[in-house]
Design a protein around this nucleic acid. Structure first.
Lengths: 97, 97
DNA sequence: CGGAATCCGGGTCGATACTG
DNA sequence: CAGTATCGACCCGGATTCCG
């Protein structure tokens, strides 16, 4: 059980999942802009990691400019569902500070 | 919302909370043994961090030998409650591998 | 132009040894 | 028993560069 917990522990992981959950599939650039202060490198890393965990998918179209879309897999949806109470709590706590 | 998520993102944080949730208050050594592979330094760090977040309390008795007990505050109980679905999911996924 | 790879500095993690 | 001290190794994250 350690593993899942540690894996989603990455700084941005839950945050990224949150946006994919909220907005559905997104292109790389959209995701980047929504999140705000994240470098392309870090975002790529996290996305690849989550892809290898099987919680998000990556759809690549080799057009020019290229178009890469990310979204939640079924497994990922399960996960974000389990994370929902946590998101809500986070919102509540941060609001009252 | 970033903050809470990022803070509990620390490698062991959720894991420690899990044990405190499951067993109630625990002494430092007990916690350490239950978790297994964690150094005293890191455990101390995490505990102090969570204490400063107000999600766990630290009860110190200056006997010889000293006795230090950690447990969840109300805020901490709220948090572990929100984490429960995640714990369950983690157990399920790891079991089926 | 969108997206990814490289390189590099700072900070965290963690093993070991030691103290009150 | 419950921590601190110390000190590497490693990882994370940012800037820059590259590719289609």
């Amino acid at each position: 059980m350690e593993s899942l917990l540690n894996q989603i522990s990455g700084t941005w992981t839950t945050y990224i999942l949150w946006f994919l959950h909220k907005h559905g599939s997104l292109r790389f650039g959209e995701l980047r802009r929504k999140i705000g202060d994240i470098s392309t490198k870090v975002l790529t890393e996290r996305l690849r990691m989550m892809e290898s965990m099987g919680i998000i998918f990556r759809h690549y179209e080799p057009t020019i400019p290229p178009k890469v879309t990310y979204g939640l897999t079924d497994r990922g949806k399960e996960l974000t569902k389990a994370l929902t109470p946590l998101y809500k709590l986070a919102l509540r706590w941060n609001a009252s500070e």
